[in-house]
Design a binder for these strands. Structure first.
Lengths: 110, 110
DNA sequence: CAATCATATGCCTATACAGGAATGTGTCAA
DNA sequence: TTGACACATTCCTGTATAGGCATATGATTG
């Protein structure tokens, strides 16, 4: 049998990958520029193995890219991978703008 | 003991809630206007209990709101809940714009 | 009140983590 | 080659699903 359909793998797509807060922390930290794993460990305050595992997930879904330089491994964000997420959320942008407009409108009537 | 720290609950925040594709389907379907559960069931092609459970999650994180009218329960999106997601992804927007610019640049040199 | 429609909730199971601890792997210096 | 440094991977465990199925709940009508 195929069995049931549990929660999807974190590596199934960017949406699942960024559901984890620490992975967003990592991406935030990497946003300005590439960093070696050791720096990421210090920045996010997690154990090194945990960080490596998170980086593995981010790498599998294409949210980060890797470059090796001697003993150091540098990670950098691949913003292109975040784009689908941004585009999906953009679909609803107009709605909160409308809401904001309504709120303002009400405020101005007082 | 507190135990280990497994994957966060889907109801912990919007990021976790929308990690599930069917929930995004539901939000997409609700985007234009409110709908009763029965219509959502037909639209997403899931069993009614599954849909109700997804709606429950979306409701718990504030991504949808409910209105009851007789036997029918109408759900509508609360775009405000998607906003944090949009804003988080916006942080990286400039990067893919830069990438796009670089790609264009290369193309124009040929 | 009974029957029915529209939803919601409970139970069960296979699956997928996330972190901790220990260990493996690759690279460089002496 | 040996030791140290920088990361990656494996194993283990408690927790959190997502869907199927059965059932409970709320509202409407006869």
């Amino acid at each position: 049998m195929i069995g049931t359909m549990p929660r999807a793998a974190t590596t199934s797509d960017a949406f699942n990958a960024i559901a984890e807060p620490r992975r967003r922390d990592i991406l935030d930290y990497l946003a300005p520029r590439e960093r070696p794993v050791g720096d990421i460990v210090l920045a996010v305050g997690l154990a090194q193995p945990s960080v490596s595992k998170h980086l593995r997930v981010l790498r599998d879904v294409g949210l980060v890219e890797v470059r090796r330089d001697g003993r150091h491994v540098f990670y950098r964000t691949n913003a292109e991978g975040i784009r689908p997420l941004h585009e999906w959320t953009s679909r609803f942008e107009r709605y909160w703008r409308h809401q904001l407009a309504r709120v303002k409108e009400r405020a101005e009537r007082n």
